[in-house]
Computed example of a mutant assay.
Amino acid sequence: MTDTLSLYYSASGEQQAVVPDSAFEYGLLETMRADRGSIPLLQLHIERLTRSANLARNTQCRIAESLGAVAARTQHWAHGARLRLRYGSVSTDTVLSPHWDISAFPLEVPSPWDNGVLLGPCDTRLSEADTRSPFSDSDANSCIGSVQSDHMGCKLLDRKTYDLAANEWRFPAFCSAGGPLLEPLLCDPDGFAIEASRSNLLILRDGCWRTPNLGRFGVRGVMLRWLAGQVEIGDDDISLSELQVADELAVCNSVRGVVPARLLSVHRSPSGMSVTPNESIPVMPGPAVSALQQRISEKLW
Rank of each mutant, 00 (worst) to 15 (best):
R205I: 14
V258Q: 00
L5N: 13
P121A: 07
T2L: 13
D93M: 09
D236H: 13
V70E: 00
L263F: 06
R295A: 10
S136N: 12
S103Y: 09
S66G: 00
H99I: 05
F174R: 13
H45F: 01
D236E: 15
A177K: 11
D130C: 03
S265G: 03
L44N: 00
D123R: 15
L181M: 12
A23P: 00
A250E: 01
D114Y: 04
D137F: 12
R220Q: 12
W77M: 14
L292A: 04
D123F: 10
L7G: 00
G234H: 10
D163P: 00
A78H: 07
L96Q: 11
L164C: 07
I102F: 12
T94A: 14
R36H: 14
V289P: 07
E279F: 07
V109A: 11
P270R: 01
L67W: 01
S38R: 14
A69Y: 04
F171G: 10
S138K: 14
Y8L: 06
L55A: 01
S103E: 15
A246Y: 12
H99T: 08
I102V: 15
Q244E: 15
R73D: 02
R48Y: 02
H99C: 12
T161A: 09
Q148P: 06
N58V: 09
S133C: 04
G191D: 11
D247R: 07
Q15R: 15
V19A: 07
E14G: 02
G215E: 14
I39M: 10
Y162G: 00
G68H: 05
C154T: 08
